[in-house]
Computed example of a mutant assay.
Amino acid sequence: MPTGVALRDPREQLFDAAERVLLRDGPNALTSRAVTTEAGCAKGVLHRHFADFDAFLAELVRDRVRRIDDQAGALRACAGSGSVTDNLTGALTGLFRSVAVSIVALVISRDELRARLRRDGPAGVPVLAEAAAMIASYLTAERERGRVDADADVDTLAPTLIGAVHLLFADREGAPPEDGAVAKVVTAVLAGAVRR
């Protein structure tokens, strides 16, 4: 007798289910049973597509990191238009209103997941490291256009922005900050680096 519902793209549906559990209940609630229940499928479906639950979680993180790569391209395309502060405020707000904060908490809370991701990824915390690279790339593009000072240290400014904005969004229980609060942080961090 079949259980659950037919899955069109099992991996993507399992990832989406995991994201919903993460956003709703946090990383401690993320289990294989919670994911398959949320996806409406048998637990064996997850294990048919992934060696174990940590392999599933590692692929979930990698999938969400790939989305940051897409965002990075869109942000770089904004270079030279709009204001630098507005462009960064929009990108950082979009990043941290997504599942990024929960992914960071998940990676920090699971030693085996963190070890798997470090074997084949960049140094640092996944998602945050890629987000910092996205911001640095954008700031470099703006520096090349003369909208950011030629001597601005984009490799320091980018992780500073990521860390400061991440702190605004890190409280899972409270309401997310308003765009104005993010813009205030961006303005303060970039003070003196962005040409008026």
Score class of each variant (00 low, 15 high):
A74M: 06
K43P: 01
L161F: 09
L117F: 11
D149Q: 12
R196Y: 15
F15N: 05
V185M: 01
T187H: 14
A133L: 11
D149P: 00
Q71M: 05
E130C: 01
A6Q: 12
E173S: 14
G94P: 11
H47W: 09
K43S: 06
G82R: 11
A131W: 00
D149M: 13
A34K: 10
A193M: 08
L92E: 14
D151F: 14
V182H: 12
P177R: 03
V127I: 15
E38N: 08
L75E: 01
T37E: 02
L30H: 01
V45R: 10
V186P: 00
A152F: 13
A51K: 08
N28I: 10
M1K: 11
G121L: 07
I103R: 05
D151A: 14
A141R: 09
A183G: 12
R97A: 15
A188S: 15
V165H: 14
D153Q: 13
T160E: 13
S137R: 03
T31D: 02
G80Y: 07
V125F: 08
F56A: 07
C41R: 02
A150V: 13
R33V: 06
G124D: 01
Q13C: 04
T93K: 14
D86L: 15
L157M: 01
A39M: 02
R172G: 11
A191K: 14
A55C: 09
R33H: 07
A72K: 02
P159G: 09
